[in-house]
Design a protein around this nucleic acid. Structure first.
Lengths: 166, 166
DNA sequence: GGCAATTGGTTGGACCGCAAACCAATTGCC
DNA sequence: GGCAATTGGTTTGCGGTCCAACCAATTGCC
């Protein structure tokens, strides 16, 4: 009686990964050819790979980008930072608060304009970023290796997409 | 007394955009060359363009992908769906619940396996998806136009990145 | 037939993101 | 100088996402 018709789709099990893995044949049929879908997958994979690599340091790409910008632009304000990393300013507030809580970033109220804040890396922040940067560099080399000599084209296309927002 | 901000139509005042726009020169110096960063920007732009286009229908790419897969695989289970759209199964639960609440999807308990659920589009779901699909197609054509005849290469590279997750 | 392992699905917690509303300080303009 | 508009920054609300833990039903195996 219990006809196992419920296991309809072949390929039901992926005993390997508990959660996410490559898309099913199902998706490949349906969503293949949709650039947006693959953009998401690639972005996700990159993010995940970075996070996994950072490991001990436990700072994801968002924090990394912020710290790099702060290092290279000491005294930068949150607003300018938000534009640099292309995140909403309301996203940056908790981000820098977290970095401050971790003693990686200092926030100094400006004397010239009492609304604004200047961000700089603490010494611990510099050291941490040094460590993190090794992982980030490895990550970049990994990505670069994957795309090989087509990187310039890829970058060009991605930039074109990002700039074309209607 | 002045409620300047309530002019919510985007692009109201700002000498740039009230929120997100293209990266600053700052970022270009710091983050340029980082594939991961540009992947995020492109993915973000695509997502945003889709959402903006869908407009009236108010279904973002996630819902769209789910509905397409359900249409093409009527009776599919949430787990299979989650693999098809490459989202965690715990993400799919509220997603389909929302679609059910909107009367776009029906969830039928399986008789064969009393744990599982079969998903199908309702008639309203079919109609809504038809409408949504026009926007989605326009979105795809837009994206395709941006990348031009380099689309195959782009897709290949993106797929390579997504598949390379260590 | 019975019990352990597996599987389908949900729940809870944490994080991240945006938009809008808001407050405080500054600038622009008469 | 004074008042409206703008700007820097925070808060609040909401949605999306993952992971881990969980429950219930089913399968595997003896």
């Amino acid at each position: 009686m219990p006809q196992p018709e419920s296991d309809n789709r072949r390929n039901s099990v992926d005993p390997g990964r508990s959660t996410l893995s490559a898309p099913d044949p199902l998706a490949l049929v349906d969503l293949e050819g949709h650039l947006g879908f693959h953009l998401r997958l690639a972005q996700d994979a990159s993010f995940r790979a970075f996070a996994g690599r950072a490991g001990v340091v436990d700072l994801r790409p968002g924090r990394y980008a912020a710290m790099v910008v702060i290092r290279n632009n000491p005294g930068i304000t949150p607003i300018a930072l938000s534009r640099a990393i292309v995140r909403d300013k309301s996203t940056v507030t908790p981000l820098v608060q977290d970095l401050e809580r971790r003693n990686l970033v200092r926030r100094d109220r400006s004397t010239a304009d009492r609304r604004s804040v200047h961000l700089t890396l603490t010494e611990e922040g510099e050291a941490t970023l040094d460590a993190l940067m090794e992982h980030a560099d490895a990550h970049d080399r990994w990505l670069d290796a994957i795309v090989g000599d087509e990187k310039p084209q890829l970058l060009r296309l991605l930039r074109r997409i990002a700039d074309a927002l209607p």
